[in-house]
Design a protein around this nucleic acid. Sequence first.
DNA 1: TAGTGGTCTAGACCACAAG
DNA 2: TTGTGGTCTAGACCACTAC
Lengths: 233, 233
Amino acid sequence: MLKYEQIALQINTFISEGHFQAGDKLPSVEALKEKYNVSKSTIIKALEALEKKGSIYLARGSGIYVRNQKRDGYLNLFSSSGFSDEIVGHSVTNHVIRVDEVPAPEEVRQKLKLNEGTEVYVLERIVHIDGNVLCYEKSYFNKDIVLYLDTSIAEGSIFRYLEKNLKVKIGFSDIYFTVDKLDIDEASLLNLSASDPCLRYEQIFYTTTGIPFDCSQLLYHYENAHFYIPSQK
Amino acid sequence: MLKYEQIALQINTFISEGHFQAGDKLPSVEALKEKYNVSKSTIIKALEALEKKGSIYLARGSGIYVRNQKRDGYLNLFSSSGFSDEIVGHSVTNHVIRVDEVPAPEEVRQKLKLNEGTEVYVLERIVHIDGNVLCYEKSYFNKDIVLYLDTSIAEGSIFRYLEKNLKVKIGFSDIYFTVDKLDIDEASLLNLSASDPCLRYEQIFYTTTGIPFDCSQLLYHYENAHFYIPSQK
DNA sequence: TAGTGGTCTAGACCACAAG
DNA sequence: TTGTGGTCTAGACCACTAC
């Protein structure tokens, strides 16, 4: 683990353990630099990582402050590679509907940049949070990257599996979403009624080298899903 | 303007002028460093800014590549301080319903950290995009920061006015949203029907020194509003 | 193994907030 | 004016990709 990551982690842990209130001032860069025995740039790099996550804000000429904590139960769309890591203190369970290997549909082929006839993994599952339906998810995976997938893996955190077991390096993603009405079939999956609202959410994940390997479509339950984005100018 | 900002701007302009396709490789850090006559760190800082915006991605050991361009008409929630700057090639117009000075409601007082009885500006307006209703917006402004506001200002870009005229330094913001059904009054504002879907969106803006000065509630039209987030691991 | 991005340092200098 | 965050440099060394 890199120096700046370690420092960021330590400071973050210290904050989330409740040693600071929102608005509290942290030690100055100079002080932190001496505490951790590293150069100024390294401290700043660590602090910028925390700022990006929404934990703190850096006020030039003034100091380093703890930011408001996000509302409980809100999904942070910022650092989003799956839910499981995000919602601390809530139980997330996945109910797998199916895992299959099928020829990639036209639309998926384009998004994953695959040739005609290429097979992909399809995964359908329902995600529950604290026993309530959070969303229905349909994902397609490029088999060149996601070498293997089965139901028991899909019941857990796929991204953790990809990183730890398959050594996939997840780089970035594109998120697109819009609000819509549910059709009858979709409604039954979410225990809702036809024409109820939903968030239609699409996310395409790329490796660090820019290969798209996961194209997912999600339907979020309008009463159970809430979102948060820490944004910066 | 800072060196790294200038470089970032130049590279970005070059890309958006269409000199590159998605996936194209940019010159190496070494080459850029010589081209712009700056140190390596400065180039990297510029590139990281572009990466954050979603224009490029940096692949260690491989190179710098142009990222897919976002879908047309999608609002980029990442760098979001108002719409006007975001949606290039689309006409955005604001129809102001009212601008008033009122005692801050309880909820607003908490979010803007104001004392009881403090007056705030309220602004209500409808935002149109290419002639269609995009959203209804109700904003409250801290009068200590937003010293003056009137209808003609609210018809334009408030954030540009705040930065240029009032020298407000916008730092960061918290975004919260959820999907919901419209009630009758809300529906009529958006030219929709009661119980149609909508995106209920709230954003609290802070100055660079952490003072909350704008607390806005928006209702997005479910057929006309689409969103995009370039996300990174 | 060559080339590319990324980390880290030490230190000069700048820009802003707050007293 | 003081202290604090932020930019920028030059250069050593590291980690990864792709051949």
